[in-house]
Computed example of a mutant assay.
Amino acid sequence: MGAPAPRHRMVLAQARLELRLLVRNGESLVVTLGIPLGILVFFGFVDVLPTDGDPVAFLVPGVLAISAMATGLVALAIQTGFERKYGVLKRLGTSPLTRGSFVLAKALAMVVLLAVQVAATVAVAVLLLDWEPTGSLAVAVVATLVGGGVFAAIGLLMAGTLTAELTLALTNALFLVLLLVSGLAFDPDALPADVAAVGSLLPSGALGNVLRAALSSPATIDWSAAAVVVGWGVVATVAAVRSFRWDG
């Protein structure tokens, strides 16, 4: 038997496999593409949001954050949890692929899918809802991808330590809670002050604030919110790599 392939080649090969699995899963596509785009189109056409100014300009940053959350926290975590339950990951554990490489491959696949979501969101907003981008779209794209990586780490932490059924229940519940308290689909000023303050310290709310600043005119960078996002990412990544179990 020859020597194992270089680590980067193993990671890229596994990432390609993970991406194919995500794309083939119809339920995952509903969560990752259907829900965020549905929110954008519905609230873009139906003027019910308690916001001043262009509702689409308000919605786009929130929908990008929702996309990152739906892909990393829900779709990726649930898929991984059931792969672990059915022994797929246990067989991977006998290969030269380390836990860190596996987590990285999962995150890379998610980032590629999220890039497609970003392109779809911008296309729908511009072509269907007559949105005129302001600020820095490039900064917003980078922030969304980083945010997706953060949620992927949180999702993999749950999938690698909890049962598949518990991961399914908790990720969906957590997605709903974060959606409600982070002010992504509505003005956070409509929330009670204490709830809004807590929401801004969560990765979803902080990511939403980073994206709104990036897409404002003129574009700015909300460094405090960015630090919150990165902090969650570092903690979740270290915890996922250290605690992920191949079987459960």
Rank of each mutant, 00 (worst) to 15 (best):
Val11Ser: 04
Ile154Val: 10
Phe82Glu: 05
Met158Ala: 13
Met10Pro: 09
Val63Met: 02
Leu76Ile: 08
Val150Phe: 03
Val103Cys: 01
Ala143Leu: 00
Leu128Gly: 12
Val88Arg: 15
Pro4Gly: 00
Val30Ile: 09
Leu22Gly: 06
Leu33Gln: 00
Leu201Gln: 12
Ala109Leu: 03
Pro133Gln: 06
Val177Thr: 13
Pro6Thr: 11
Gly100Leu: 12
Ser216Gly: 12
Val63Asp: 05
Val181Arg: 00
Ser217Asn: 14
Gly34Ala: 02
Ser204Asp: 10
Val142Pro: 08
Trp246His: 06
Ala214Ile: 09
Leu201Cys: 05
Glu18Val: 05
Lys90Met: 12
Val74Ser: 02
Pro4Thr: 03
Gln117Ser: 12
Gly87Ile: 05
Gly183Tyr: 04
Trp246Gln: 04
Ala225Gly: 03
Leu92Arg: 15
Pro6Tyr: 10
Thr237Ala: 14
Leu59Lys: 08
Leu128Ser: 04
Pro55Met: 07
Leu145Thr: 13
Trp232Gln: 01
Pro203Trp: 06
Pro61Ala: 03
Gly205Arg: 02
Ala236His: 11
Asp130Leu: 13
Gly135Leu: 08
Pro192Lys: 02
Ala105Gln: 01
Asn172Lys: 04
Arg9Cys: 09
Ala159Thr: 10
Asp54Ser: 06
Ala68Pro: 10
Pro4Leu: 02
Val122Tyr: 14
Ser216Ala: 12
Thr71Met: 11
Thr171His: 01
Leu29Phe: 01
Pro50Gly: 06
Val235Ser: 03
Val30Asp: 04
Leu176Trp: 00
Leu184Ala: 09
Gln79Thr: 10
Ala169Met: 15
Ala226Arg: 03
Ala138Gly: 10
Gly208Leu: 01
Ala68Ile: 05
Leu215Met: 14
Gly208Arg: 02
Ala119Ile: 10
Val238Leu: 15
Val31Met: 15
Leu170Pro: 00
Glu132Asn: 15
Ala77Trp: 02
Leu201Ile: 00
Gly100Met: 11
Arg20Lys: 09
Val124Phe: 05
Tyr86Thr: 13
Leu168Met: 09
Ser182Gly: 11
Ala70Arg: 09
Thr134Ser: 14
Ala206Val: 04
Lys90Thr: 11
Val241Cys: 13
